[in-house]
Amino acid sequence: MDTQLLNSLALFVLAILVGFEVISKVPATLHTPLMSGANSIHGIVIVGAIIIAAEASDPLGYVLAFVATVFGAANVVGGYVVTDRMLQMFKKKPVAAKADAPKEA
């Protein structure tokens, strides 16, 4: 195996461990946004799609690159927007709301 592959494998293993470490602390409350957020991160395949678009030189290659780019872009943009929509709904504000509520009622 060449050095580059060994380096890549090391990177892969360490990133998996970091993933385990970072995620195991997230409370269940946030599991859906977390899954959606992780879902957007694998939209990183868009980088791969751009790379193959740069290398494509025949019609079949163009088609594969184009479809991969559309897929990747939908994954990235949709994923982040929907996660943001979810997270902006998580608000604290109970202290103020509790204090005001009895007066309104």
């Binding site: 995620i23 195991s24 694998h42």
Partner: peptide, 30 residues
């Protein structure tokens, strides 16, 4: 996530490998 990491190995791209592995691990834990 794992598939993205595999394409990172194929293309020799570090960000694909790291991001893919992160998602693969986090999805596994969830």
């Amino acid at each position: 996530g794992t598939a993205a990491a595999m394409s990172g190995f194929v293309l020799n791209n570090p960000v694909l490998i790291i991001a893919g592995a992160l998602v693969g691990a986090s999805g596994g834990i969830l």
